[in-house]
Simulated scan of single mutants.
Amino acid sequence: MMYDTIGRGEHEWAGMTANEVRTLGSKPGSILIIPVGSIEQHGNHLPVVTDSLLVEAMVDAAVERLSDVPVVVSPTVWSGFSPHHLTFGGTLSLEFENLRSILEDIANTGLENGFDAVLFVNGHGGNGPLIGSVVSTVGVDTDAEILGTTYFELASDRIAALRDSETGGMAHGGEFETSLMLAVRPDLVGDPAEREGEPLDEQYRWAGQDLLDGGAVGVYRSFDAYSESGAIGVPEAASREKGERIRSIIAEELASLLSAVHEHNAQRLPNDY
Rank of each mutant, 00 (worst) to 15 (best):
S52H: 01
S156A: 15
A61R: 05
E97G: 06
S156D: 13
T87H: 12
D141T: 15
A171P: 08
N108W: 11
N127F: 14
S136A: 12
S101R: 15
P235K: 09
H11S: 15
D213C: 03
R163P: 08
L180A: 10
L258P: 01
G197W: 12
R221M: 07
I246W: 11
L211S: 08
R8T: 02
T167H: 03
H124F: 11
G215K: 09
E64M: 13
G148T: 11
K27F: 01
I131A: 05
E241A: 14
Y3T: 00
A61D: 06
E153N: 10
A161H: 03
H264Q: 14
S74K: 01
L211W: 13
W78E: 03
G15S: 03
R65W: 07
R185T: 11
I6C: 05
G173P: 06
Q209E: 02
T17D: 05
V49P: 00
V59H: 00
G15V: 01
L66Q: 04
E10R: 13
Y273D: 14
I131D: 05
A61N: 06
E177G: 07
P83E: 06
G173V: 06
G132L: 06
A216M: 09
D224T: 00
G190T: 03
A266I: 11
N19V: 07
M170V: 10
L254P: 03
I102S: 15
W78Y: 12
T167I: 15
T5K: 09
G215P: 02
A251Q: 04
R158S: 13
A207K: 00
N44A: 15
E153M: 11
I34G: 01
Q41Y: 02
V63P: 06
V121F: 02
A107L: 09
P129G: 11
L254N: 04
L182H: 07
G89S: 09
D68G: 07
E194H: 14
F88D: 06
G43Q: 10
D143R: 14
Y204W: 01
S229R: 04
I159Y: 05
V69R: 01
D141I: 12
S136H: 11
N271L: 02
S30P: 06
E97T: 07
I159P: 03
P35W: 05
F120C: 08
H42E: 11
L188T: 04
H262G: 06
R158Y: 02
D141P: 01
L180C: 13
Q41K: 10
V189K: 07
G29E: 03
G15M: 05
S133W: 10
V59M: 00
T178Q: 11
Y220R: 06
F176Q: 07
V63A: 04
L211G: 00
G25L: 05
N271E: 09
R195D: 04
P270R: 04
S259C: 02
H11M: 11
L130P: 05
L103M: 13
S133H: 12
E196H: 10
T91M: 12
G190A: 08
V36Y: 04
K242W: 02
E241T: 15
V71N: 01
